[in-house]
Amino acid sequence: MENNSSDQQQQQQDQNSSSQGAGEQGQDQRVTMTQEQLDEFQTQIKLNEDYQNQLKQEIEEQMPFISELTELSVLKHEYQDNKFELCFDQLATRYSKVRRLRRDGNCFYRAFLFQVFEHFIHNPEDPQYEQILKVLVGSKKDLMDLGYDEIAIEDFYDLFLDEFKKLKTIAKAKAAEHLLKLLCNKEEAVYIIMFARFLAACYLKQNAIMFEGFVGDVAQFCMREVEQVDVECDQPQIIAITNYLGLGVEINSVRADGGIEVINLPEEGYSGFRAKLLFVPGHYDALYQ
């Protein structure tokens, strides 16, 4: 009797599972896959990943890491007949040029570092320089206190610090040339941006209580959304890196109604340098007057 009823239950379950969505069925099939099928499945996944990497590379090659100074009207032209087109008229009242960034997941970091470094080449006497230098020197200890292995961070730290110190020696007229070389390659630029990611992660972890409500588990968030190469940057990371370094940003965010929303981080009580950025959903570019 008992057997019978459990058989019925089983039947019921079978019927249920056969009436469920394709995703569920896919999983059920996997239970009965042979090792050969599974290996084939894995090969397909790899081919798919290769294809995506190839696509990514093609996108990359269409655009330099950082463009030369470009008229803002060029951007407006590209957004012709788009809901954001009118935003550029409003933006043009305050800015006239833009440096466009490659859409490789590093656009915020690259644009931010470019403008900050550029500012200090042009203003070597700005007292903020020494303050940031002090923070940078201390950042290795800060990171190690949070549990980072010295060996994992020191190459990034050394290079970033060296390049920051070097800014004072660069001739003003050579600023753009120097920075386009420094931040636009697949070698040292990757290290410099990586260290900027570590600095953001550092602040996020030091102030985990402040961020938990927004990003969930902060350590997990840093692993997934901050410390990976080429992963895009969101507001928590921006708040983190600007606060850690004691710098500011002014983000000009396009609005669907054709306006521009200006977001200052930190919001108030800050009078130092602000990197000026344009934000179109999913992407940052650097703005110039």
Binding site: E49, Y148, D149, A152, F156, A201, E227, Q228, V229, D230
Partner: peptide, 14 residues
């Protein structure tokens, strides 16, 4: 171990 999930913060030991 996948490039899109790897972070340079990892070492061989970790």
């Amino acid at each position: 171990l996948k490039p899109q999930h790897w972070s340079p913060a990892w070492t061989l030991e970790s």
